Amino acid sequence: MNKYLLSFILIALAACNSKQINIPGFDENLWQQDTNGCQKIRAEMTDSLEQHRDLLKGLSQDEMISLLGKPDKNELYKRNQKFFIYEIIDPEHCTAASKQHIYLSIRFNATGMAKEVQIYKE
Rank of each mutant, 00 (worst) to 15 (best):
residue 84 F to S: 01
residue 54 D to G: 00
residue 68 L to Y: 03
residue 87 E to V: 04
residue 53 R to Y: 02
residue 50 E to T: 09
residue 74 N to Y: 15
residue 79 R to M: 15
residue 92 E to Q: 15
residue 74 N to C: 13
residue 57 K to W: 02
residue 74 N to E: 15
residue 64 M to E: 11
residue 58 G to D: 02
residue 60 S to I: 05
residue 58 G to H: 00
residue 54 D to R: 10
residue 80 N to T: 13
residue 77 Y to K: 15
residue 93 H to W: 14
residue 65 I to N: 08
residue 71 P to G: 08
residue 69 G to T: 01
residue 62 D to E: 14
residue 90 D to T: 09
residue 53 R to W: 03
residue 93 H to K: 15
residue 95 T to W: 14
residue 58 G to A: 07
residue 89 I to R: 07
residue 60 S to E: 08
residue 56 L to V: 06
residue 50 E to W: 03
residue 64 M to H: 11
residue 79 R to S: 14
residue 73 K to S: 10
residue 53 R to L: 00
residue 54 D to F: 05
residue 57 K to R: 09
residue 76 L to C: 09
residue 70 K to Y: 07
residue 52 H to W: 06
residue 77 Y to R: 15
residue 64 M to P: 05
residue 65 I to Q: 12
residue 66 S to Y: 10
residue 79 R to W: 15
residue 64 M to Y: 09
residue 66 S to W: 11
residue 65 I to K: 11
residue 96 A to D: 13
residue 85 I to T: 06
residue 74 N to K: 15
residue 65 I to L: 02
residue 91 P to Q: 12
residue 65 I to G: 01
residue 73 K to Q: 13
residue 61 Q to I: 10
residue 72 D to R: 08
residue 70 K to M: 11
residue 54 D to I: 04
residue 68 L to I: 01
residue 71 P to Q: 09
residue 74 N to I: 12
residue 49 L to V: 05
residue 65 I to C: 10
residue 63 E to W: 02
residue 52 H to L: 00
residue 52 H to E: 07
residue 69 G to M: 01
residue 54 D to E: 06
residue 76 L to D: 14
residue 76 L to I: 13
residue 74 N to L: 15
